[in-house]
Design a protein around this nucleic acid. Structure first.
Ligand SMILES: NC(=O)c1ccc[n+]([C@@H]2O[C@H](COP(=O)([O-])OP(=O)(O)OC[C@H]3O[C@@H](n4cnc5c(N)ncnc54)[C@H](O)[C@@H]3O)[C@@H](O)[C@H]2O)c1
Ligand SMILES: NC(=O)c1ccc[n+]([C@@H]2O[C@H](COP(=O)([O-])OP(=O)(O)OC[C@H]3O[C@@H](n4cnc5c(N)ncnc54)[C@H](O)[C@@H]3O)[C@@H](O)[C@H]2O)c1
Lengths: 207, 207
DNA sequence: GTGTGACTGTGAATGTATTAACAGTAGATT
DNA sequence: AATCTACTGTTAATACATTCACAGTCACAC
């Protein structure tokens, strides 16, 4: 599997395919044609076939795609067939909300250690997770074997935190802090900027 | 201004330009070249010039772009130069977190009326905002003159809620519910799917 | 004034993503 | 067994986005 020639947009659709397939599986549907899958996804059938064919030939002319099999295959591709433990930095309003969100668990993610710099929070347990001092990152994090992290902290000194996470083996980061963070070599950062989304909507709705 | 020929990616960058320009303004910088702006944005200088030139000629060969002027121009383009009031559906963990988030206010957005179906919450006031019954949407919402809404509720009956919002003049929606919602004619929906983002990161970090 | 250097705005070139179109195939039908 | 139908996987065509590269412009030096 040559990752470099998978279109980024296709990657973003993969998780949606999986979600749609999970629903079909729940409904007892055994197999599905690109046509129907496209309809459920809101894309063209050609797009579906193209997306899937990048990873192999899973379809069958007579029956289409096997729902259970394809669901499993996409899960393995995404790496979400096994539970992954994430680290989180910042246990403020957002951090606490994310901690109690069940949607992550359902899709193979689990927030493990949480780090903050506020002494009020350090040592306490929230939603079953212990809050550690950000100063203890190097001693605590390795025990959890995390490959991914969530940033839900303040913006000051963010680059330093990212560098430390990278040194500790974190390969990818979901960042809620609305400021530019330059990814260290080999680290992927996905930014979630809600205000930017609202601004985009504001622009579009003027059209 | 012909909106149809503005690349979507450019729209998404507009809010980031504005943020960068706000920082420059704060630092007392009067004008800036595409080069420097590109550096701060993490894109190429050609991209910056192309993006801005779509909306007009704001630059000056000798001084580059006027920081204050461009900041204002982008604000007007995005429609965030005036405060906009949003409606929100769902006052759960996420809804409450968003209500208290200061970042929205800072960028010209204000959550006004909040609707829920839980009688425990209806009538109460959270962070200065009254929670109304979702059944009273038609009577309450018009008073607030909202053009945008946030969905932070459960997934059942979502299409019906979206249809009602559309009928009441909502033009665009920020949706946190992880299921496909088909936008009614003339309504824009931006989906925020955090699990999908994590799955994307999981895939990329296997490369 | 004339020359120099550095910039913007943009046409042309390239790169990336989507859609159209069809060859090849397998089951169903006569 | 020959024909028909409807599908997948893929090649070719199109659309969309970014980058290159340069003509035209302005400020400044001499
Ligand atoms: N709350 C929201 O709805 C929302 C929405 C979008 C983005 N965000 C962003 O997410 C981040 C967190 O938001 P919040 O509302 O939870 O803020 P918050 O102030 O409630 O919490 C921030 C937490 O991070 C901790 N923190 C700050 N700097 C730290 C550091 N260097 N190391 C460790 N811990 C640190 C603080 O002690 C605090 O506990 C902010 O950057 C915010 O802009 C929040
Ligand atoms: N909590 C998170 O961190 C998080 C992250 C990403 C996405 N989401 C999504 O956001 C949504 C809300 O999440 P949450 O954690 O706040 O859930 P929650 O259960 O805490 O709150 C949901 C709220 O919505 C209300 N509600 C449900 N259906 C409604 C309807 N039809 N009309 C009006 N109100 C309705 C409920 O009464 C409840 O108050 C969910 O769809 C969830 O999947 C949540």
């Amino acid at each position: 599997m040559d990752f470099s020639k998978v279109p980024l947009q296709t990657v973003e659709r993969l998780s949606r395919y999986r979600r749609v397939l999970a629903d079909l599986q729940e409904d007892g549907v055994e197999s599905v044609f690109s046509h129907r899958l496209a309809e459920l996804m809101g894309v063209t059938p050609a797009q579906v076939r193209r997306d899937l064919s990048i990873f192999g030939s899973f379809g069958n002319v007579a029956r289409g795609y096997d729902v259970v099999e394809l669901h499993g295959t996409i899960g393995r591709l995404l790496g979400t067939d096994k539970l992954q433990t994430l680290a989180m930095i910042g246990l403020g309003n957002l951090g606490r909300t994310l901690l109690t969100y069940r949607g992550f668990q359902e899709r193979g993610f689990h927030i493990g250690p949480v780090f903050d710099r506020d002494s009020e929070k350090i040592g306490k347990v929230y939603a079953g997770r212990r809050c550690y001092s950000i100063d203890d990152l190097e001693t605590v994090l390795p025990d959890f074997k995390c490959k991914m992290a969530i940033l839900a902290c303040g913006s000051s000194g963010l680059d330093a935190i990212v560098a430390r996470l990278a040194d500790l083996g974190i390969r990818s980061i979901l960042n809620f802090v609305p400021c530019r963070v330059i990814p260290p070599q080999g680290v992927f950062i996905e930014n979630v900027d809600l205000s930017a989304k609202l601004e985009k909507l504001s622009f579009l709705s003027k059209a």
